[in-house]
Design a protein around this nucleic acid. Structure first.
Lengths: 128, 128, 128, 128
DNA sequence: GTGGTCTAGACCACT
DNA sequence: GTGGTCTAGACCACG
């Protein structure tokens, strides 16, 4: 499981947090599963414990995990998480569509291109 | 024409560059139009000439303008510009769609929500 | 009787102590009643005896129980306990009222809102 | 202006944040006022820049200030801030009242005592 | 000069 | 061993 990409301009702690967010949203990490300890994860990623700590703090603040001092960090089984992510995605996508319209590209034009783009990435076959 | 928003977290030079990009893509600025001089624009925006220079450098790097030493900066009336932007938007949108699918939200579900969002019915949460 | 909530951010020993404090103040545990033994309580709560011991030490320090070596821990049926708790609560509440006044919210305004809040009408924002 | 109390068990960064929150809520710091720079405040408080940074990050997260990279931190003139603080205070106070009732102390009893307590703190008069 | 991030290493509270 | 906080010192992006 690769987490940190040093080419990526985003800070390391954000990449770590993002990575766990996806794992939780995808259901790879389930409610009350224990997260790797701050120190062990820092070792594994060859980064500093403070950096991991910052990622975990962020995850807790956003409601993805909860912390029990002396015991560790655990996944919060919140059904709302996926809904929040959905709203976030919709707002982002809508923003991009508005940008497109401003420079004279229509909604349907984009949709079509995106569909082609997506099927092109998957195939040979076509799912969606 | 308001360009800089100090409350915006993005760096000022990026806001300036972005603003010109949109003007060019929308056709407000046309091929070979002369850009305002670095110094005059810095005055107008009450900002540092270095900052404006950085924005112009960025615009040149991305192919939106060209520089003639001693004469100034000019809009590169390249028909490809809009196409490049289009491809960029499509890739971004497709990326978000893929993210959505990974956590189990279908393409059509997103499209519908986005349409509703765009028609001004800023409707928040939803189905799960 | 549920005592420990692992989602609660407070340390476990504090949750245990708090739980017994309330039972004593409410009169569920009466003067000279015997407390459960450290070991048995640890078993029942599936926690570490050290943690239970720490809770008991805390309770003794605050005057809620007393220890007889070789026999166990007993409730200190002190009539003053409730009064102490009362004074403590009053000081805390008064502190919050002072904070409110400092930012320009009157005593009566708070009282009213609190009454409404307590009568179950969980009414959020308001007047300003 | 004393900010840090080393006797206080709360972490330093929280004390710093709390201090500025009060100054903003009281109106001592007004909208768009510039906050002291991270480094200068760290010097003044004889603490580490990272600690101040953490306090500022917290303040930004809670909506009290906004940050402009390269320029500094500024107070966010949000009228809602006071309302949020009010709701928070009411919830805390209501919680304490409920605690009091559970051990058999009535609402009015508390109110009276608190009034006496507060008037006692202002005069040199006599309390409880 | 400003904030943002990161490393290295330390101490403390809790289990 | 676990997380939470703090110090000291460094580098980078921005203006």
């Amino acid at each position: 499981m690769k987490i940190i990409d040093y080419q990526d301009s985003r800070p390391i702690y954000e990449q770590i947090a993002e990575s766990f967010k996806m794992q939780i949203l995808k259901g790879i990490l389930q409610a009350d599963d224990q997260m790797p300890s701050v120190r062990s994860l820092a070792m594994e990623l060859s980064t500093n414990p403070n950096t991991v700590q910052k990622a975990y703090t962020e995850l807790e603040r956003e409601g993805f995990i909860y912390t029990v001092k002396g015991r560790g960090n655990f996944v919060k089984g919140d059904a709302l998480l996926k809904d929040n992510k959905k709203v976030e995605l919709i707002e982002e996508i809508a923003g991009l569509f508005k940008e497109a319209e401003e420079i004279g590209i229509t909604f349907d034009e984009i949709i079509n291109e995106v569909k082609m783009y997506l099927s092109g990435m998957i195939k040979g076959g076509g799912t969606t």
